[in-house]
Amino acid sequence: MREAITVKNLSYKYPDGTKALENVNMEVQEGERIVIVGPNGAGKTTFMLHLNGTLHGTEGQIEIFGKSVDKMKRAEIVKEVGMVFQDPDDQLFMPTLFDDIAFGPINLGLKEDEVRERVAKAISSLGLSGFEDRAPHHLSFGEKKKASLAAVMAMEPRILVLDEPTANLDPYSRTELIGILNDLNEREGITMVIATHDVNAIPELADRIYALNRTIIETGTPREIFSNGELLEHNKLDVPDVFKLFEVLRCFGFGCEKLPLSLDDAVSGITKVIETEGGHIHLHIHEHTHTEVRKWKDKYGHH
């Protein structure tokens, strides 16, 4: 497996003096799905803008498939790293969806029939058929989000960078988008770097998490990160609802070995417990239950 992204000692200061990034290090393997978590203002967006050379670190180095971003030509980086911005209105600027999706491929210098082919493929793979002639202001937010993903996918990048892709989406569109992203990763082996606050989406989207707050605080699998109570507390990070619920169930004596991170996990976890405990689940209230529930509440600051 190859290293898709290597970030070494990256620091960045905005012109007004804000130190947004300090000594950030990251390694991403080809085909990996990386989620970056961190509170507002942690520098997630700033960091991502470095990955395609939009911003250049005041210090440090970024390599994409072994090549230094600073030495790559604009056209070269753009072909490798596709960037989906948080607000689709920032990204869709052409009068129609077709033009917008065609914009990138045209800039890559592709021939007209090839451009049309790419557009058609991106439109159908994101389920946007029939919207070709629509103006962006006549699309719903969810459609705009998919459109901006289609516009980037039409450039066929090997790395996809997404800034808070599920923010502001309704539950249906959110699930749909997560499915689309995982599909792209599975079928085309696209490497993904995703910034998100959406903790419930993380178990489904992340092979590995980087916790960022100006600098990288910790990295690990979702399970490692979500089990690290101290890390979560210090950085005001949240964990998936399912995970919390099973922590509570544990206080009531539910005996699963691994706390589930997703609903699928939960189903197989419950099934396993039922099987080992002879066909049913046993919950109880003992003296210690109340103290444990109280502890649990304190942990997440619920009062």
Partner: peptide, 8 residues
Amino acid sequence: QALRSRGY
């Protein structure tokens, strides 16, 4: 920034 990201 978004324009440049798509090779503008």
